[in-house]
Design a protein around this nucleic acid. Structure first.
Lengths: 196, 196
DNA sequence: TACTCGATGTATCGCCGCGATACAACAAGG
DNA sequence: CCTTGTTGTATCGCGGCGATACATCGAGTA
């Protein structure tokens, strides 16, 4: 089976561009997904090991600084995609299963949008939107009960949470509309609006 | 040292109202903090064990359904605060250390606001606000680099992230203003605005 | 020249949260 | 009667995280 988890997926996407060191992967992941979602070494290196073990990536230890036949110099390991890794990435990008609209998966998938076709992009955006819609109703409904049973602070917490979800839905609507108009062939631009 | 983690804190606050079963704790925590932050049994029961072991809570197994001298009926364990648990909760509520404005801690602290004094509330709100301000600058700065180096989707992801943080800052500002005017003694209401 | 500091780089350890899962008692309704 | 749902306790393995250790290297500075 070997379902690809979010972390592996993000790494696959990253290494598709070019081979990287573990350190660089961590740094770029932090800069691409934002300062949140930082990813610690305690997750990274074990994950890389797993991926090597399952043949998705390969470790290149041609030590750039292997000076002078010196003793045990093992440092600087560049990781790159194998053929299997590439096909797995492609497969995963095309599939975009129901888990793609989870809170912690969505932004990784979104950051890989340039590597996907418009149909898949739309599927993910709409999937995420419907997931949030469900939550919207759920929370709006619960908000009433919270108002009755709990204090004003708790209520305010829920109200703000609801507002946040509403914002994200609006955001998704804009993206979806944008994606649709691009598909309609108005112009070949694959770019979202970027209004400011 | 025994620093109290978020989970324990939430449980302490919950049990301060009344003794509860593990099952009820889980359910209420889900309904108070929102449908997110659900808390699985795999975290709950071990945590309860830890808390019992450190004397913060006590297990009351007076089996409500201990019918008829029957065999080994051990079910329905009600957990309640010990004296030590109460003082720990009070201490923790008053302290409100620097960790109180972490992403995953803040909402728990916020949901306990009715149990705290106005000064502590303000300290937490302002702490959270300044934490977000830092992040705001950080992200706004990084956004420029993302625009140059990355694709439009990644840029949009960051722009939206920035917007979300801005929203929360505005929200906090409203709460802070509200808390201040309450402290000024305009009226004894401890309630936030709740505008809608 | 030597010293220190910060970035780059690999790696592991223990803690603990999570999802899945198992089990049991009991109430309601078809 | 039998299935379904709720209440209830509990554990297992997986894996992410924060802390930490250690090594190398370039640049600035005393």
């Amino acid at each position: 089976m070997a379902k690809t988890d979010v972390l592996s997926l993000a790494i696959l996407g990253m290494l598709a561009e070019q081979p990287l060191h573990g350190y660089q992967i961590r740094k770029r992941l932090g800069s691409e997904l934002g300062p949140f979602r930082a990813l610690s070494y305690g997750s990274l290196y074990p994950c890389l090991k797993r991926m090597v073990a399952s043949g998705l990536i390969a470790a290149d230890e041609t030590d750039a600084s292997a000076v002078r036949t010196a003793g045990s110099r093992r440092s600087k390991i560049a990781y790159g995609l194998t053929a299997e890794g590439e096909s797995r990435l492609a497969e995963e990008l095309a599939n975009a299963g129901a888990s793609s609209w989870d809170d912690d998966t969505f932004d990784v998938r979104f950051s890989l949008f340039t590597k996907t076709d418009s149909a898949t992009r739309l599927r993910i955006l709409e999937g995420r939107r419907s997931r949030l819609s469900e939550r919207l109703e759920e929370v709006a409904e619960g908000l009433q009960r919270v108002r009755e049973r709990h204090d004003a602070y708790t209520t305010e917490l829920h109200r703000h949470g609801l507002e946040r979800v509403e914002r994200e839905v609006e955001w998704l609507d804009r993206l979806i509309e944008n994606e649709r108009s691009a598909t309609r062939g108005d112009n070949p631009s694959t770019a979202p609006a970027g209004n400011n």
